[in-house]
Design a protein around this nucleic acid. Structure first.
Lengths: 222, 222
DNA sequence: GTGTCACGTTTTGTATACAATTTTAAAAAA
DNA sequence: TTTTTTAAAATTGTATACAAAACGTGACAC
């Protein structure tokens, strides 16, 4: 897109936020970043502004940038939208995926079984992302796929928390199996419903998710 | 958000694109903009980058910025997502709007009747936007409302074209009446369905919309 | 006449200098 | 001790200067 250097910064900072190296609330002052990346303030500012418009950081006039803290209300709102987009992806994917694509998805799914058995949380998390991205792309609606991934990234800092919930992996794997089954049966409506609930409530309830969130990651007054 | 000056530029340029003063494909070179707004290149570049991340313009490395030309395929994809978001807004709004909010919406709707009778296209267009924004906000999901408005803005340059389709105003007004009726009846499912179809196919068919699009607004190969 | 290469111009990407505002810190007064 | 004021320091917003890459023009060769 834009400059080469500023694009690198963007990717790196985005990665840091998504993986939790930079947690919500942290300050990002320009000077430190210029030193860290050995560039001038100009590309740093461009990267920051891009992050801001993606929604990953907040920039207040004359007060610098901070990793975005999302209020509880907004987080719930985001999941509400996320569920709908994910459901639409599933609906369209079920109608539009070729048999080859479905088969590919099944293989990808079955390959993750070993990770569940060994309890490899981090690796499973990445594989999980890929599984869902396969469905996004399966919708054959590129714009939708990108929007959904963007939103997924935006809530990622908060999802990673709930990684180590007991039996989380087994539950996720079982739900994936059901979703895959619905796709193979070409039951679009059921795929959509399964995905909508899979996104947020995963296993038990949304309450579990909320309860396990460290409060300091949320905006004050939540 | 960011700087005061660059924020003004952003708004003004966005307005120009949304109203059609700047049409898809036009080049936006930095020098002209610095002269037009009497500022240096720095705020100009910031505004351009923001527009790029909103999706209204394209920035190619070392090749400048152009008002975004959306391919036909992508345009269809965007409307597919738009319909879903609009439908979700309607679904939630029907469940969550207070009686006062519904009443307010009805008044707003009835006020537009005079515009239909007089064939005041431009004024009706604005009123139409407000009507829909009322529903967005009625979802009581601020994040969803913003996302929907953003997407609406992104396709706005292409919607404005079809303004003068014969009997477009009457049809739109009648559909609004039906939507409003479903909301008043608290029939969330019907509201959602009505809105989904209202967004795109308006009156006859999506084909009509596609057919009336000036081809030079679309990317090559569409 | 057409195609290609070279040079000059234009435009973008980056760095740095300057201006303005906010934060902080300390000092003075209550 | 606490609060308020004030000034210095640090940080952000803007402008300009410099570097590098792309575009256009023109000349030369075929």
């Amino acid at each position: 897109m834009a400059a080469k250097r500023s694009e690198e910064l963007l990717k790196e900072l985005e990665h840091d936020i998504l993986t939790g190296t930079l947690t919500p609330g942290m300050k990002l002052d320009e000077k430190s970043l210029t030193e860290r990346f050995n560039v001038s303030r100009t590309p740093v500012r461009e990267a920051l502004h891009k992050l801001a418009s993606i929604g990953l950081i907040d920039i207040l006039p004359r007060r610098g940038a901070t990793v975005r803290k999302v209020g509880l209300k907004e987080l719930i709102e985001m999941f509400e939208v996320m569920a709908e987009l994910e459901g639409l992806c599933g609906l369209l994917a079920t109608q539009r995926m070729t048999n080859d694509e479905v088969q590919n998805l099944r293989h990808r799914h079955e390959d993750t079984y070993i990770l569940v058995e060994n309890g490899q949380y981090d690796t499973y998390y990445d594989a999980n992302v890929l599984f869902h991205e396969c469905i996004y792309k399966g919708s054959h609606n590129n714009f939708l796929a990108e929007q959904t991934m963007n939103l997924r990234n935006r809530v990622a800092p908060y999802r990673r928390i709930q990684l180590r919930t007991p039996r989380r992996l087994e539950t996720s794997f079982a739900e994936h199996e059901k979703i895959l089954h619905a796709i193979e049966a070409r039951d679009a409506e059921q795929t959509s419903e399964l995905l909508k609930s899979h996104v947020t409530v995963q296993q038990g309830s949304f309450n579990n998710f909320i309860s396990t969130l460290p409060m300091d990651l949320l905006r004050d007054g939540s």
